[in-house]
Design a protein around this nucleic acid. Sequence first.
DNA 1: TCTGGGGTCCTAGGACCC
DNA 2: TCTGGGGTCCTAGGACCC
Length: 408
Amino acid sequence: MTEDPVARDRSRRILHVDCDAFFVQVARLEDPEGVGREPLLLVGGSAEGRGVVTSASYEARRYGVHSAMPMATALRLCPDATVVPVPRKACARRSRAVHGVLERLAPVVQAASIDEFYLDLAGTERLLDGESLEGTARRIRERVLEATEISVSVGGGTAKLVAKLATGLAKPGGVHVVPPGREGAFMRRWHLGEIPGVGPALLETLKAKGLETVEDVLPVEERWLVEWFGEAGGRWLRDRVRGIDPAPVESSEPRKSVSSERTFPRDVRDPEILERELLRQTVSATAALRKKRLRARTVTVKLRDADFTTRQSSHTLAEPVESETAVFAVARTLLDELRRRRAGAVRLIGVGLSSLQEREDAVQLGLFGGEARAESDRERTIARVVDDLRERFGEEAVLPARIVEPGE
DNA sequence: TCTGGGGTCCTAGGACCC
DNA sequence: TCTGGGGTCCTAGGACCC
């Protein structure tokens, strides 16, 4: 097999920066005297009794606790742990701070999630006066820690895939760089489930073929991989296990969707409660939308039934909207439609907004003759006034009359 | 041990237009 | 008479990630 010069560009210098137990770190920094002193700390578990662990302290991990584990299970394994909710706003703020520092240290920075970033250092060799990639990684780690108090681990290599896996060996608070030419050997240590992009479903299929580790896949001829996993899938797997990943580091794309959802503490059948919660999620999703100065054309309602099947229904409008009134009008009929298809108890309800556009602030005149508008200027104005009130007096200051509980 | 909430990307079928 | 093919948009569902 010939080496593809693009796929195996050994001159690429990519770093993967990952915040160590990010949610735990942030919770501690926000409350140094309280939670900051608790070694056994679990962050998450929002849905009263039905939550999962979002992040566990390294001390708690020694008890077998890991993220995505139901909180009830985690507390059985580690009964002395302290549980705190995810400090969402502080996490977003700290993430932006880390991102800001990285952008001053590398020409291209891609935010892969709230706590992970890829850096492409191509073209900085002269500037850095021959500093090794490992040296750069250490310097970046120190700079981030100084400037943001956030401890990160850094992986490096000639591809994003390799850099990300290397971070796993760097954690916590270290650096691991795979030298050019060593990618193939480096890959041999991994179980297939550890390869980014291989999830539970693919893992099952692989297992059924007797494939569990990278070493298992390496000797399999490409034609078999293609026969089993399709043209694209087979080639993808062939490349992955060899550490070949041509994906470029791209500075972050504009947002594509905004959503808000909630799992009920107990399953719900009552249509009134469902509708009230739908309104709550609509309020929260549209507020987030407006905060980002966006409008949406597509509204999606998501339901998770008691048996954990997830269903959704969506509708795309001709014109983008931003007010809760306009979105709720659509969401309500979508909920009715979903309930018509299948009634029964509901575990989760959510509202998603997509087909996003940046809003222009000029007032929209009646461009569309007699056509019915999905949203009036009045509705938009009201929504923005409400945003302002919430900002000044708190999130709960202004709620639509319909979701204020009797007696509140 | 029953399984959160925020996202992204991909696929496949049908509508509709040329 | 039988039967075109491609492109784009929309919807539903699923896999995957942190």
